[in-house]
Design a protein around this nucleic acid. Structure first.
Length: 682
DNA sequence: GTTAGGG
DNA sequence: CCCTAAC
């Protein structure tokens, strides 16, 4: 018996950032849209993207970006010119510390914007050039209807005045799209947002101004910053007037009147009709590229280059901002799986081709849009729920390995473990407030994955495919567990329930260690160094993982409790765990098996197991029996017919001999010990 | 829980 | 390596 200290490691994958843009009406988890193929859909795409941006940020509270350049103004507010022109890349780490962290902590939710607002105020007051530039961007001089999507404004935000100026100069006005049209579109979208806010007082009044109540009350307490998008917008517009007061206004959510709502209602309705009509036609004529030449159609056909730039911006900012200000939110999205396609951010983020699939909803939209004032909340169906999955975690793994093991062996163990989990296929489970959403046919809206407060509780789970559905076990796993970041730094210490590895008898001898019993131990062979799969798959263990880590912890296959709640498509073994990983017998294992069978015979596999494979936890006596069966078969066929690692002919000869002998013995006296065993017993 | 045998 | 009948 080998006694050796083991090191426990917990793994949680770390993968590339992802962002998903999914229409609310999308069904199922795989409703990722295909990329748009023409300018028409590009235009809709862009509008949808913008709308989604606005929507999300109105719901989840938009937070201001951090100025990249003069991020650390001196106490007296003095800013050097070179500071303004210096492009300082924003490091993500910066968002996890300092004022960002404070603002995230919750008590002073307005701190982030306050800081930012003051900062920007300082910048503006000290540098009228930047202020002017920003104003130009806001006013639409660069042709972008929403300043946040304006390249020059974006640059200004980051303090990159030179870049902002360059962007402004390079920016071609969208001559095909009159400002009024854009204003109208904007108003339409914002109208949707207000409706979504579910505030009865959110009205589009006929006097061309809109009173927008604060969304503060609807912001989850654990979100970082209770400020609506329009509030931030207003902050920009009113920055000339004050600085600190901006913050208090935003934070306390007083009623404001925003310039952006001052559009003409009739025009808005007309535009909306055209837009909705356009969307509807698009959904019906998805393959028809000859689009009607309505005004909107023409005006939607603008340069795709701009769209691309806009998208680039829309991806860029939410990523940074929420990293800073929405830590609590982001953490729920951090859970993820290492899917290759997930890393293709630009592709996924532009999936809005079938922007509107629900014709009935469109009808409702058009119908309701004809009615001024209250509109159905279903209008928001057309917008998107934007989920940013920062990373997907691979299943949490547990590896126990002697300190003396090599790094290479550790790598192999991890590789084996990962392979074992992935080989059976894998799928994503969706958790909302700790509960599984099993009905793939539900829309996101129906499932409740549409509102900001709910999105906080949204999580994803990576699960093996070969799992089963067992209702009696549901309650165990369905307990709402807050989805928080998982550090998984103490994976093994939190398992009070003894695992097989805690038992010395299950410790696997490793080649690096002197092993007195290695003579008969197949595990002493270098090739037989395997990841102890039995260990991490204990039920109790996994339950703790699921509840403690609270992250996207994919459920190992043999966790019956967890697996039981997983809806599956490919369910080949409904009531059982994932197939064990294939572990070919090494030559030394074969030798040990042959030797044991020579002594014990072919009908005492349990004894064979105990005698020769007691340390090999992954070899059951059934495995040994099966292996012997295949060995006999292998010995009978020609070497050319054999596959896998060649077994020495000497061993195969012994197999045949032993097989012949014990077949004969079993026919005569099934219980008589072999001469060899007699010798051993003596 | 083991064994044996088909898949 | 899985599954299961038979013990």
């Amino acid at each position: 018996m080998v006694s050796t200290k083991r090191l426990g490691y917990g793994f949680n994958g770390n993968q590339s950032p992802t962002m998903l843009l999914v229409p609310r009406s999308a069904k199922g988890k795989r409703s990722v849209r295909k990329k748009s193929r023409d300018n028409h859909t590009n235009a809709i795409d862009m509008l949808a993207t913008i709308a989604a941006d606005l929507l999300l940020e109105s719901e989840k509270s938009f937070t201001a970006p951090v100025i990249g350049g003069p991020s650390n103004p001196t106490s007296n507010g003095t800013l050097k010119k070179e500071d303004l022109f210096e492009v300082k890349p924003i490091k993500e780490e910066a968002f996890d510390q300092g004022s960002c962290s404070e603002s995230v902590s919750g008590s002073n939710g307005g701190c982030a914007l306050k800081e930012h607002g003051k900062l920007n105020s300082d910048v503006c007051s000290k540098n009228p050039t930047q202020k002017e530039l920003m104003t130009k961007c806001i006013s639409g001089d660069c042709g972008y209807p929403f300043e946040r999507h304006s390249p020059c404004y974006a640059e200004c935000w980051e303090g990159n005045l030179a870049g902002g100026m360059r962007a402004l100069n390079q920016c071609e006005p969208l001559t095909n799209m009159s400002p009024d049209i854009w204003k109208g579109l904007e108003t339409c979208i914002l109208g949707e947002l207000m409706q979504l806010d579910s505030k009865p007082s959110a009205l589009v009044s006929s006097d061309s101004s809109v009173e927008v109540p604060s969304s503060e009350d609807h912001i989850p307490r654990n979100t970082s910053f209770p400020t609506g998008w329009w509030e931030e917008k207003q902050l920009h517009l009113d920055r000339d007037d004050d600085d600190d007061e901006n913050c208090s206004r935003c934070t306390h959510g007083s009623t404001i009147t925003s310039k952006v709502f001052r559009s003409h209602d009739k025009q808005n309705d007309r535009i909306k009709k055209l837009l909705m009509s356009k969307f509807r036609k698009d959904s019906r004529l998805s393959t028809n590229r000859d689009f009607p030449n309505s005004d909107v159609d023409k005006k939607l056909l603008f340069s795709s280059r701009k769209i691309g730039y806009t998208r680039k911006r829309t991806q860029r900012y939410p990523f940074k901002r929420r990293k800073c200000f929405h830590r609590g939110l982001m953490s729920t999205y951090d859970e993820a799986v290492n899917y290759e396609y997930m890393s293709n951010l630009p592709e996924i983020n532009m999936k809005v081709e079938n922007f509107d699939m629900d014709a009935s909803l469109h009808e409702a939209n058009i119908k309701s849009s004809n009615v001024t004032g209250q509109r159905s909340i279903h209008e928001s169906e057309d917008f998107h729920v934007k989920l940013r999955i920062k990373s997907f975690k691979v299943p949490e793994l547990f590896v126990e390995i002697p300190k003396s093991a090599t790094v290479g062996s550790l790598k192999r163990m991890v590789m084996e473990a990962v392979t074992a989990i992935l080989r059976g296929g894998i799928h994503v489970g969706v958790l909302l407030q700790g509960k599984k959403i099993r009905d793939d046919s539900k829309t996101l809206l129906q499932a409740g994955i549409s509102h900001g407060d709910k999105l906080d509780k949204l999580g994803f789970i990576l699960e093996p495919d070969n799992v089963t559905l067992s209702p009696p076990l549901l309650t165990n796993h369905e307990e709402p567990s807050p989805l928080l970041p998982c550090n998984a730094t103490e994976p093994l210490t939190r398992s009070p329930s003894a695992t097989p590895l805690a038992d010395p008898s299950t410790i696997i001898a490793l080649p690096e260690l002197p092993n007195p019993s290695a003579v008969n131990s197949p595990e002493s062979d270098h090739n037989s160094f395997h990841f102890p799969m039995d260990v991490p798959l204990q039920d109790d263990h996994q339950d703790e993982i699921s509840s403690d880590s609270r992250a996207l912890v994919p459920v190992p296959a043999t966790n019956m409790n967890a697996l039981s709640i997983v809806p599956i498509q490919k369910r080949k073994r409904p009531e059982h765990s994932q197939r064990r990983i294939r572990r070919p017998f090494s030559v030394s294992e074969v030798e040990a098996l042959v030797q044991a069978v020579e002594m014990l015979g072919t009908g005492r596999w349990r004894d064979v197991k105990i005698r020769a494979f007691d340390n090999a936890n992954h070899r059951t006596y059934v495995d040994l029996k099966d292996k012997w069966k295949t060995l006999v078969h292998t010995a009978k066929i020609t070497p050319q017919q054999r596959r896998g690692e060649p077994v020495p002919q000497e061993l195969l000869d012994r197999v045949l001999a032993a097989h012949a002998y014990w077949s004969q013995q079993q026919a005569r006296l099934p219980t008589k010990p072999s001469p060899a065993e007699d010798c051993m017993l003596n």
